[in-house]
């Protein structure tokens, strides 16, 4: 009998303890945020949208290889020696990057691509608000190059290669005749 009334008492009292705490919380500042008006201060190393600084990219494909979901696709064309530029980090750009696409739909934001980059030109930015009405809107094209320009560069590289091969052949011929 005593147990019966104790149970009833506990059944009332323990929820009241909880409710009193809930009531107390009414008078403390809220922890939620009105999102579009207020925003979080994100840490600088937040991993959101990827960005590639194309001036520094040497087209080494390290990032493409490191990516576990193959969402980076890069095409390169050999640059002829007169056109080789230098990056801000002092690397030689021996390749023209004709295509540098990152499919942010596939990207899993794992950050594996940024570590192997020799010139540290691919990195993640704290910007996360990006949406698109279709899935191609999130394919980022970091190189603005027309196909004509790419073909031109390719042609140039091919001509250079041919000329180089011819020069080599000639040189070896010459050396062969010289030794003979």
């Amino acid at each position: 009998m005593l147990q019966y009334f104790r149970n009833i008492w506990e059944g009332f009292w323990t929820p009241l303890v909880g409710l009193s705490m809930t009531w107390r919380k009414l008078f403390v500042p809220s922890v939620t945020m009105q999102y579009p008006e207020e925003r979080w201060e994100l840490p600088t190393n937040s991993r959101m949208q990827l960005f590639v600084n194309m001036d520094d990219c040497i087209g080494c494909l390290q990032c493409e290889r490191a990516c576990p979901v193959q969402c980076i696709s890069i095409d390169t064309v050999k640059a002829i020696p007169d056109e080789v530029e230098e990056t801000t980090t002092g690397h030689k750009k021996r390749l023209h990057v004709t295509k540098f696409d990152i499919d942010m739909v596939k990207c899993c934001y794992c950050d594996l691509c940024t570590f192997p980059c020799p010139t540290e030109c691919i990195y993640m930015t704290p910007s996360f608000e990006d949406s698109s009405p279709d899935r191609y809107g999130l394919v980022y094209h970091f190189v603005n190059m027309t196909p004509q320009r790419a073909a031109e560069l390719e042609e140039k590289a091919r001509q250079f290669d041919a000329a180089e091969a011819a020069r080599k052949a000639k040189a070896s011929e010459k050396s062969a005749t010289a030794t003979a």
């Binding site: 149970n7 506990e10 059944g11 009292w13 323990t14 929820p15 303890v17 909880g18 705490m21 809930t22």
Partner: peptide, 12 residues
């Protein structure tokens, strides 16, 4: 402790 008061020791 707050959680204990609120839930763990709640009779219901």
């Amino acid at each position: 402790q707050e959680l204990n008061d609120l839930l763990s020791s709640n009779k219901i």
